[in-house]
Design a protein around this nucleic acid. Structure first.
Length: 554
RNA sequence: UGGGCCGUCGCCAAGCGGUUAAGGCACCGGGUUUUGAUCCCGGCAUUCGGAGGUUCGAAUCCUCCCGGCCCAGCCA
């Protein structure tokens, strides 16, 4: 076997882990974790992180935990947590262990007391505003709070009473005692605990103080013996603090944080706040609107887990501020569905064609391959009669140059059927074409026409047996590549991001399809039966993506 | 000189002192085709943000410069 081995794409994180394993670091184990906060739906940016974390674990025969970073009960809820579990599973990943940061609250509290005893943390009774003022600026050092030198006994006592609920929100916080002059703002005595007299989904009201992310995350990683803690670039500045905390306590593990660039996808917005806004202001119909970049939305649009995993493979992992073109995502689903999706015919914007040289009650059954390159996909029967629907776009009274479809006096192949010629146009009183009267060449079924070339092939559906359906065609939600840069998104929302087409005609067999079944509608694109709205009596399809169209581009 | 980070083809991205600077997407040809799809074949960076330097040899090491991103939540 001398054939060239396909070189698996390398990335810096994989290289680091590879080197660590080779060096026997962390006992040559690889344990990662995906740590979402249950305060929103997962989106395609999270998919990158999920694929990385689960992918690395599986590649190195390690484990990947799913851990909810549930340290802020004010914003988190169970609906989000359930959705996250479903999305990760749907993507095809299985977590090794399921944890919650809240499982560690007691341990976190104990470590915090250790920190106080070691003189590494203190209770600050300044207000949030005062603390902000004392923090200094990017170029000026901070100034110490008057509470910075409280005794260990006083700190311990106060912290204990904070926990017991004696104080109101904001009365005190627990701060690490590090370096108020640090150029890294995170090291200027960061807050470790704040008082929040609010019930937590999992711990109820047993706590009135909650630990901050910086303190919780590293300790949670250590408790779970995570080896490689992968996160996005904005946490780079937090790494010194992550390490500082673990150095102060008697940590069970020695996780190492490595940061990578978060995904930036053209024409989409991935900030949780903005996504929530889209939903709440009804710019979309919900978290699973097929235009949303959420996993559930992308799923409803018709993307598959495999196509999303492929996407992550293609975009790579680096620290570059990279913008991924929409096309890259689209090509992933095209490539998968081109191989896997059975072909069908559907007419979205129909115009009637009457074949005048066939008896009015003529009907015939034609056999079609379900896939042109894959015999194993089988065949199906399609009804044909003297009246068919074709796409309005496939007829032009005044054809543009190089037009290969039906024109007056011209011929075109009805895919899998006969070559027809248009002889006459019928218009209504306002001038709209309502019917094309054509004749057919009976000697062209399954063979090329005699003595001439017919280049064009168009799709069609039998008017007698075709079934009415709703098809929703989608375009990008925004009109600009970087919507996040816009002042308000009301003026950059694409008014044509969704077009609901209710007069579509589909092959009769399509009504039997289960929800979430993928098809290629020939010459149009890939479509999926809607997860929620599709049924035999209400056939409903979403357009996942169009076919590549080199002609339309010109 | 507040701190941290990033710059390799239009868009991603390998590359880790010696390679003809991988690969994918896009693009441009040409072939096959009853989907203007797919598929196939070919083309596509004398050059790695810039300028110096080290070296027999630099995208890879050093210096300076230019451009971009992140940080002043009791958010994550």
């Amino acid at each position: 076997m001398s054939k060239t081995e396909p070189v698996e794409a390398s990335n810096f994180i994989r290289n680091i882990i590879e080197a660590d394993v080779a060096a026997g670091k962390h006992d040559a184990q690889v344990v990662t974790r995906f740590p979402p906060e249950p305060n929103g739906y997962l989106h395609i940016g999270h998919v990158k992180s999920i694929c990385l974390n689960f992918g690395m674990a599986s590649r190195f025969n390690g484990r990947c935990n799913l851990r909810f970073d549930d340290t802020n009960p004010a914003r988190e809820n169970e609906e989000y947590a359930q959705a996250i579990l479903e999305d990760v599973s749907w993507l095809g990943f299985e977590w090794s262990e399921l944890h919650h940061a809240s499982d560690y609250f007691e341990q976190l509290y104990t470590y915090a007391c250790d920190l106080i005893r070691a003189g590494k943390a203190y209770v600050d009774s300044s207000s949030a505003d005062e603390m902000r003022a004392m923090r200094g600026t990017l170029t000026e050092p901070g100034t110490p709070s008057v509470y910075r030198d409280r005794s260990v006994e006083e700190n311990l006592d106060l912290f204990k009473r904070m926990r017991s609920g004696e104080f109101d929100d904001g009365a005190h916080v627990l701060r690490a005692k590090i370096d108020l002059a640090s150029g890294n703002m995170n090291m200027r005595d960061p807050t470790l605990y704040r008082i929040r007299k609010i019930a937590h989904v999992r711990t109820g009201d047993s706590w009135s103080i909650y630990p901050m992310y910086d303190y919780t995350h590293c300790v949670s990683d250590a408790i779970e013996k995570i080896t490689h803690s992968l996160c996005t670039l904005e946490f780079e500045d937090h790494r010194p603090l992550y390490n500082w905390v673990l150095e102060q306590i008697d940590a069970p593990g020695a996780p190492e944080q490595t940061e990578f660039a978060r995904l930036a996808l053209e024409y989409t917005m991935l900030s949780k706040r903005r996504l929530i806004q889209l939903v709440e202001e009804n710019h979309v119909r919900g978290w699973d609107d097929p235009r949303m970049p959420t996993i559930t939305g992308i799923r409803r649009r018709g993307y598959t887990p495999a196509s999303l995993r492929d996407f992550c493979e293609r975009i790579g992992v680096t620290k570059n501020d990279a913008w991924i073109e929409m096309m890259v995502l689209e090509n992933c689903i095209r490539d998968q569905l081109n191989v896997e999706a059975p072909r069908r015919m559907a007419v979205l914007d129909p115009i009637k064609v009457v074949i005048t040289d066939l008896p009015e009650d003529y009907s015939e059954t034609l056999s079609f391959a379900n896939h042109p390159q894959d015999e194993s996909a089988g065949r199906r029967e399609i009804p044909f009669s003297s009246t068919v629907w074709i796409e309005q776009d496939d007829f032009a009274e005044v054809p543009p140059p190089k037009y290969q479809r039906l024109t007056i006096g011209g011929e075109v192949r009805l895919r899998g059927s006969y070559v027809i010629k248009c002889n006459e146009i019928i218009k209504d009183e306002t001038g709209n074409i309502i019917e094309l009267r054509c004749t057919h060449d009976p000697d062209t079924l399954g063979k090329k026409p005699e003595g001439r070339k017919v280049k064009g092939v168009i799709h069609w559906v039998c008017a007698k047996k075709g079934v009415n359906a709703q098809v929703r065609v989608y375009d990008t939600l925004f009109t600009v590549p970087n919507p996040a840069a816009a002042e308000s998104f009301t003026d950059i929302i694409n008014a044509e991001s969704e077009k609901v087409m209710s007069m579509c005609i589909i092959e009769p067999s399509l009504t039997a399809a289960e929800p979430e079944t993928h098809f290629q509608f020939e010459r149009l694109g890939y479509f999926v039966t809607d997860r929620r709205d599709h049924s035999p009596t209400t056939p409903t399809f979403n357009r996942t993506v169009t076919l590549r169209d080199t002609w339309a581009k010109k």
